[in-house]
């Protein structure tokens, strides 16, 4: 099957800045694909390369097998939900949604009828006559979605679509977007810096770092088997262990990651690994306990404390099980199979 989007050694340089640097990427058709990374990592530039707002410095961009790097945005069968929604302030909600049909010369009756259908799809029936300024952030987001879908794109691009929404609304929209994507069966590519959002929504994701893809895979792959230290750090919640610590707990001298739910607390006497509880954080379903093990190096002349063989290990204790108090000494044990080795980059 032809992939929806394919990058072959695509680079986009701005002067001496390599925003996107020789990226190879395949987005399968019908997938919900996330581009995850910190700001400035090149994920948004990748999205803009697909929509056509940026031209690649070198490399080849294929959309459904067609070389599209030189095609202007208005001739690409790809639509975007913009980060700031970019709704036209002088047009009504209905005319905003119908815009894509209007510029294609569809008559007023037909395009308004179709726009009403799309407004219903995003649960905004009856909001057509309003102006965008009269809507809440969540409603604007839905209008932007309906507007981008009216041309029936084969690929929908979403640039930090939920970034401006509050937590509760964001979670509701996550479910809704996912359901919408499954219903429409088109490819969604979305950019986000929120790990939880990427892991929970996407069926494949690419983690970006400094213009390159650090890892690409399923959320499971990324979370449980991060390829590099950067991915483990960025995706977060996992314990990232420097080589000395990996060695101290019985592994080879390499960077590794250890999921907090794979670590258990045991009585300190006779335990291979011991430490002191330095923080506890109640998360609802579980409590995250931080245990400091080993020794920190003495601060150097700049006041910087090196890692030494010390590590703060996060441990997840399901609610209902006893939680140690701050300052308690405790032993630690873990499933050796859960220790995942990775690149130090």
């Amino acid at each position: 099957m032809t992939p929806a989007v394919e990058f072959r050694a695509v680079s986009r340089h701005f002067g001496s800045t390599r925003a996107v640097d020789a990226v190879d990427l395949i987005v399968p058709e019908g997938s919900f694909f996330a581009m995850l990374g910190p700001s400035g990592s090149g994920k948004t530039t990748c999205l803009r390369l697909i929509s056509g707002f940026e031209k690649p410095t070198s490399g080849e961009i294929r959309i459904f097998g067609e070389n599209s790097g030189e095609t202007p945005p208005h001739l690409r069968h790809v639509n975007t939900v913009f980060q700031d929604y970019a709704l036209f302030p002088h047009l009504s909600v209905l005319d905003n949604v119908a815009y894509g049909l209007m510029v294609r010369g569809v008559d007023r009756r037909t395009r308004h009828a179709r726009a009403e259908e799309l407004l219903a799809l995003v649960h905004l029936d009856g909001y057509g006559p309003r102006k965008p300024a009269q809507l809440s952030g969540g409603q604007r987001q839905r209008v932007a979605l309906a507007r981008a879908l009216i041309n029936e794109p084969r690929v929908l691009l979403l640039d930090e679509p939920l970034g401006a929404l509050d937590l509760k609304l964001r979670e509701a929209m996550q479910d809704e977007l996912k359901a919408l994507q499954q219903r429409l069966g088109i490819t969604f590519i979305f950019v986000t810096h929120d790990q939880t959002e990427a892991l929970s929504m996407a069926d494949r994701l690419a983690v970006f770092n400094a213009g390159k893809i650090a890892q690409i895979g399923t959320p499971e792959d990324i979370y449980a088997r991060p390829a590099t230290r950067f991915v483990a750090d960025f995706v977060g919640s996992s314990n990232v262990l420097p080589p000395a610590v990996t060695q101290a707990i019985g592994g080879p001298a390499r960077w590794s990651s250890l999921r907090p739910e794979a670590v258990r607390l045991v009585p300190p006497d006779g335990a291979a690994l011991t430490g002191r509880v330095t923080a506890t954080r109640y998360l609802g379903g579980a409590t995250r306990v931080t245990v400091a093990t080993g020794r920190h190096q003495a601060p150097d002349e700049r006041g910087y404390i090196g890692p030494g063989d010390a590590a703060d290990l996060g441990v997840l204790i399901p609610t209902g099980q006893p939680v140690p108090a701050l300052g308690d000494r405790t032993g630690l044990t873990f499933d050796p199979a859960a220790l995942h080795l990775m690149d130090g980059a």
Binding site: H74, A86, F88, V103, N151
Partner: peptide
């Protein structure tokens, strides 16, 4: 972004 949105939806410059 408004100009980009317009182009994205198929409008010529």
């Amino acid at each position: 972004s408004l100009l980009e949105a317009s182009a994205d939806l198929g409008a010529t410059p």
